[in-house]
C-alpha cells in the first residue's frame, strides 16, 4: 500500500518577464489502487502538475510538498523518483534518435528493478505487452518515438507503464489524439496494470470519453492552477454535459 501526498504545491516557470506562478496551491492524496481523474481546460496547469511530480527541471517548486510513502519526492532527482515507483506517461513523448525501443525498455527495466531482467521472461513480457497494445513487433527495433504517430506514442507510453510496474502513475492526456479503437486499447492497457499491480493512477484529461473505459474513484476539476471542485465519477458526467464554462471567468471559454 503506497500513498502519494501532494500538499499545497506552488510551482512557477521562468519566463522572459520573470517567474510566473502556474500551480497555486494543489493538495491531493492518491493511494494504491485508486484512480483520480484531473480534468481542466487548456492551460490550467495540468501538465505542470505532472512534470512537477516527475521533476522536470523547467519547473520550480516554490512551496508545498510531495511525498511518496513519507519520502520527500522533491528532494529526489528525476531518475530517483522513477526508481522510487513514480511514472509519468507524457502528453508529448520525446524522440530519442538512434536508441531502439527494445534497448530503451531493457535499460529502463534494469534501472528501475536494480538488476537486469531475466532474458527469456523479458522477451516474452515485452512481446505479450506489445501484442496486448496491438503494437507491431517491428516497433521494438525502431528508435524511441521517432516517426511514431500520436497514437503510437501513447501506446508506447502505456507499454512502459505495463513493463515498469510503477507504484503511482501520472497519465498526462494519454487519451488525446487517439481514435476510438486506440482509446479502447490504451484504456484496456491501463486497466490491466491496475488489476495486476494495484497501481495508483492520476489520470489527466481534457475530455470525459476516456472515463467511459477507465472508471475514476475521484474527479478533480482543475482551473487556473488549483483544484476548483472535487467529486466522484458523477462529476465527470456533469462536466460532459456542461463543459468548463461555469468554472471560468465570464467570456473566457474553453
Amino acid at each position: 500500500m503506497s500513498t502519494l501526498e501532494i500538499k499545497d504545491l506552488h510551482v512557477s516557470v521562468d519566463t522572459e518577464e520573470g517567474a510566473k506562478e502556474i500551480l497555486r496551491g494543489v493538495t491531493l492524496t492518491i493511494n494504491s489502487g485508486e484512480t483520480h481523474a484531473i480534468m481542466g481546460p487548456n492551460g490550467s496547469g495540468k501538465s505542470t502538475l505532472a512534470y512537477s511530480i516527475a521533476g522536470h527541471p523547467k519547473y520550480t517548486v516554490t512551496s508545498g510538498s510531495v511525498t511518496l510513502d513519507g519520502e520527500d519526492v522533491l528532494e529526489m532527482s528525476v531518475d530517483e523518483r522513477a526508481r522510487a515507483g513514480l511514472f509519468l506517461a507524457m502528453q508529448y513523448p520525446v524522440e530519442v534518435p538512434g536508441v531502439t525501443v527494445s534497448n530503451f525498455l531493457r535499460t529502463a527495466k534494469t534501472a528501475v528493478d536494480g538488476e537486469a531482467p531475466k532474458l527469456r521472461h523479458w522477451v516474452k513480457d515485452v512481446k505479450d505487452a506489445m501484442g496486448n497494445l496491438r503494437m507491431d513487433p517491428a516497433f521494438a527495433e525502431r528508435n524511441v518515438n521517432e516517426g511514431f504517430s500520436g497514437g503510437e506514442k501513447k501506446r508506447h507510453e502505456i507499454l512502459q507503464m505495463e513493463l515498469l510496474k510503477p507504484k503511482m502513475a501520472v497519465l498526462d492526456e494519454t487519451d488525446s489524439g487517439l481514435d476510438v479503437d486506440a482509446l479502447r486499447v490504451v484504456s484496456e492497457g491501463v486497466n490491466r496494470v491496475k488489476e495486476g499491480t494495484d497501481v495508483g493512477v492520476l489520470l489527466i484529461t481534457h475530455y470525459t470519453r476516456i472515463l467511459r473505459y477507465i472508471t475514476p474513484d475521484h474527479v478533480h476539476v482543475f482551473v487556473d492552477g488549483r483544484i476548483a471542485e472535487q467529486g466522484g465519477a458523477e462529476l465527470a458526467d456533469r462536466l460532459e454535459a456542461e463543459g468548463y464554462d461555469r468554472f471560468l471567468p465570464a467570456g473566457a471559454g474553453a
Binding site: A54, G55, H56, P57, S77, V78, D79, R81, A82, R83, F87, L88, M90, P93, V94, V96, P97, G98, V99, N103, F104, T107, A108, A111, V112, N143, V144, Q160, L164
Partner: peptide, 24 residues
C-alpha cells in the same frame, strides 16, 4: 529528462543519447 524519468541514471542516459546520435 525522458530517459531519466524511466529510472535511467544521468550518465547512462547521456551515453544512450550520444551513442544514439552517432548510431546512423
Amino acid at each position: 529528462f525522458y530517459l531519466m524519468a524511466r529510472g535511467i541514471r544521468e550518465d547512462e542516459a547521456r551515453r544512450l543519447v550520444v551513442r544514439g546520435f552517432f548510431a546512423s
